[in-house]
């Protein structure tokens, strides 16, 4: 469908979806901890804007609840928790050394193209206004994984993990206007508990290896010592 034929809100969906993807790239390139958390918060906020726009265009009222839930959880609560944790651990101004930043961004771009290819059969079957964003949601998932692979600090890995969750939620909105409410509430609860547990683990890791560089967690293997 050509963008000219779309209404202004439908175009708004595409714009905010593109911005969600953009924040994924920002996170990939951002080496400082605090701006990384801000970028993640922005992703959550943009995601909830997208969801609200989808609700407006499609007339599915329950998506407004999902949008509110996402805004509260992914744009406010979890970023705030992470921010507090970095303050308490005195790492908020840390800069991580990202190896091969330009190569990572290039790999990210390749992943996006790949997602458009994989999502083609799904997008062709779909009749929803959001079908152009299915590939974007998939790309958000894979870029979150890429973030987890390329980073070494526990905080960045957690943000990658949460960004994957963002992508999954986005996928549900884009392909089916969200999941049934009971499932969405269950998933939100799991994400919240996971965020709390991650906070506990920051302290456990810190006290066991005296840093948050998870590359140094390498004691367990099959070799005898």
């Amino acid at each position: 469908m050509h963008p000219d034929n779309l209404g202004v809100f439908s175009q708004g969906i595409l714009v905010s979806a593109a911005l969600v993807l953009f924040t994924s790239f920002v996170m990939l390139a951002q080496a400082r901890i605090q701006p990384l958390i801000y970028a993640f918060a922005w992703q959550g906020a943009l995601l909830s804007v997208t969801t609200a726009l989808v609700a407006l265009v499609s007339g599915h009222a329950h998506l407004y609840i999902s949008a509110l839930l996402t805004f509260g959880l992914k744009a406010l609560l979890i970023p705030w928790m992470l921010y507090r944790l970095t303050q308490r651990l005195h790492i908020q101004f840390d800069v991580e050394i990202v190896s091969h930043p330009s190569l990572t961004l290039l790999a990210g771009a390749v992943l996006v193209v790949f997602c458009y290819y994989v999502a083609l059969p799904v997008a062709q079957l779909s009749t929803l206004v959001t079908r152009n964003t299915i590939a974007v949601s998939m790309a958000t998932v894979l870029l979150g994984m890429l973030l987890m692979i390329t980073r070494r600090t526990a905080v960045a890995q957690v943000i990658g993990f949460m960004s994957i969750e963002n992508g999954l939620f986005f996928a549900a909105v884009a392909s089916t206007y969200g999941m049934p409410m009971i499932v969405e509430l269950g998933v939100a609860f799991d994400v919240l508990v996971a965020a709390v547990l991650f906070g506990v683990f920051f302290f456990q890791i810190r006290s066991s290896i005296d840093s948050l560089d998870v590359d140094r967690l390498d004691r367990l293997s099959e070799k005898g010592d």
């Binding site: 998932v141 547990l197 066991s208 290896i209 967690l217 004691r219 367990l220």
Partner: peptide, 22 residues
């Protein structure tokens, strides 16, 4: 038990299963 080994195991378990189950 909060030994370095057990924290490492738990972190791996959390991340791998979390991403996998995603």
């Amino acid at each position: 038990y909060r030994t370095p080994e057990s924290v490492e195991a738990a972190w791996k378990y959390f991340i791998l299963c979390g991403v996998g189950i995603a």
